[in-house]
């Protein structure tokens, strides 16, 4: 496990988030939401501080972080890629598109490339079913993506 040194000012901000929820263990999910907003992800060091502040076990915090797909322990890439796996996109071949991204980037869903450039995730419906299958990279939306287009799309970044 790579160790991340969290700057003192950020530690204070994190503790303030915990205090906002009265350091109440039953507010763990809310605290983790706040923490992920602050850091972009939830590295072990952040989870340790949260466990200490809320007086819950570290295993419990980790259990919650790994249960909800919203929480991530990996920093997002500079260009976060999301492939829509909603029904419409799925039936129009989103899985093949996803496989192509995985193949070209050599990462699994939820991971970030070693150079920190791309991260890969799935989501459920962006409300653009007419454009299925849909891929979003950062704020940009790509519609009617075929597996063959993936290389070209990545080339834009």
């Amino acid at each position: 496990m790579a160790s991340v040194k969290i700057p003192d000012t950020k530690v204070q901000e994190l503790k303030a988030i915990c205090q906002k929820f009265r350091n109440d263990g039953s507010e763990l999910i809310n605290v983790l939401h706040g923490a992920q907003e602050l850091f972009g992800y939830l590295p072990p060091e952040v989870q340790e501080i949260v466990a200490d502040e809320l007086n819950v076990s570290l295993a419990h915090v980790y259990g919650v972080v790994t249960f909800y797909s919203f929480f991530s322990m990996l920093p997002k890439g500079k260009h976060p890629i999301s492939i829509c796996m909603g029904t419409a996109c799925y039936v129009r071949g989103a899985e093949k598109v996803l496989d192509e991204f995985k193949k070209l980037l050599k990462v699994k869903v939820g991971e970030t490339t070693p150079d920190g450039k791309y991260s890969l995730s799935c989501l459920r419906c962006v409300g653009a079913c007419g454009l299925a299958p849909v891929v979003t990279i950062g704020e940009r939306v790509y519609g009617r993506v075929a597996a063959g287009d993936v290389k070209k799309i990545l080339g834009e970044y």
Binding site: P44, L58, A59, Y62, T66, F67
Partner: peptide, 21 residues
């Protein structure tokens, strides 16, 4: 002692210490 917790979800779920150490 608080070492064990259920982690992950669905088929991947397992009881383990924090960070699966």
């Amino acid at each position: 002692v608080g070492v064990l917790s259920a982690i992950n979800r669905g088929f991947e779920a397992v009881v383990a210490p924090a960070f699966e150490m």
